[in-house]
């Protein structure tokens, strides 16, 4: 039991401990060199450039996406600013239009007022003129009625109608007192 068959293969003078069996060192050296160089070539020529390019492409893509997102954000901010400016402009214009309209209406109202007032003045003046004319006519009639009344009073008193110019003179004298 102490000596399994595997150990009987060990050449004389060799260690029983496999890692120290130098008979296998040349084989180990040859195959390690071969496989290590093979792995090195595969890594250096294929794997590492490929993974490097994958990572580079990804970081470039991420940077581009962030840049374009930034660009879109700026554009949307500009659009918002433009919208707010347009809104403010429209509000200002509406204000000025309202003011204009108000002033124009006030001016028109004043004009109408003035026109009506002038017309009223005119009519008042015409009315006063016609009143004055009517009064003068009435006053003229009063003299004729007084002369007629005086002449008929004198005729009743003296039985004879006085001459018209005498009556008028007497009336003028009476009007003087």
């Amino acid at each position: 039991m102490a000596a399994p068959t595997a150990h009987t293969e060990v050449p004389a003078g060799q260690s029983k401990f496999p890692p120290f069996q130098s008979a296998y060192y040349p084989s180990q050296f040859v195959w390690l060199t071969l496989t290590f160089v093979l792995l090195y070539v595969l890594m250096a020529r294929v794997a590492l450039p490929r993974i490097g390019s994958i990572l580079a492409v990804r970081s470039k893509r991420i940077a581009e996406d962030i840049a374009s997102a930034q660009h879109f954000k700026e554009r949307s901010e500009a659009a918002q600013a433009a919208y707010e400016k347009a809104l403010a402009d429209a509000r200002a214009r509406a204000q000025s239009i309202a003011n204009d309209m108000h002033e124009r209406q006030a001016a028109a109202a004043e004009e109408t007022n003035r026109r009506l007032e002038a017309e009223l003045h005119e009519r008042l003046a015409a009315a006063e003129k016609s009143i004055a004319a009517t009064r003068a006519a009435a006053m003229g009639n009063v003299g004729a009625i007084a002369a007629e009344a005086a002449s008929s009073i004198v005729e009743r008193l003296i039985g004879k109608a006085p001459a018209a110019h005498e009556v008028a003179g007497a009336l003028a004298d009476a009007g003087k007192t």
Partner: peptide, 19 residues
Amino acid sequence: EIAFTNSAAYMFIIVILAS
């Protein structure tokens, strides 16, 4: 002596799996 050993076989397995 140069021989293809079980160790060499595992070295190739390492290369294959790593690749």
